[in-house]
Design a protein around this nucleic acid. Structure first.
Lengths: 64, 64
DNA sequence: TACAAATGCAATATATAATTTGCATAGGAG
DNA sequence: CTCCTATGCAAATTATATATTGCATTTGTA
């Protein structure tokens, strides 16, 4: 469940809380997705991608 | 929650049941995802994409 | 037309994503 | 050092993705 959310978020210098607000989830949810603990839903993945100007593949495809 | 799963599956001439087996879910789950009723998890989206030789963006990105 | 495979649909049950709350910790700025 | 912001962590709860079962309906084909 690894992904590029944390790296991308840091590149854009926004906090977990700011990203969380943009996609209407809690800070904890973002934290757990970044850590790879959560298996997020498609809707949420799309919301996160759009919130940071990326696509699904950019953030979630074959990140090892 | 629209997507290209059904079109892609039909192009490849496989049934819902065959796709379901490949990604280890039930036929109903595939059916509901194709209809846009379900909001699948990222893991499942990735499994479906790989099972049909596509990427996340191919199947789930900005399908209107 | 008739049969069979594929798909749709609906109710109930189960697993897990996401929330909520609270506190701990790390790091930078004054 | 002190204050403040950002992040980590953990337990209990809620919302929802997925499973299970059974039957109805469609669709292609002989």
């Amino acid at each position: 469940m690894k992904n590029n959310v944390k790296i991308t978020r840091m590149e854009q210098k926004i906090t977990q809380e700011q990203l969380a607000r943009r996609v209407h989830v809690t800070r904890q949810t973002i934290g757990l997705i970044e850590k790879g603990v959560y298996n997020p839903t498609l809707q949420l993945c799309v919301a996160i991608a759009k919130a940071m100007g990326k696509t699904l593949d950019d953030l979630f495809w074959e990140v090892d």
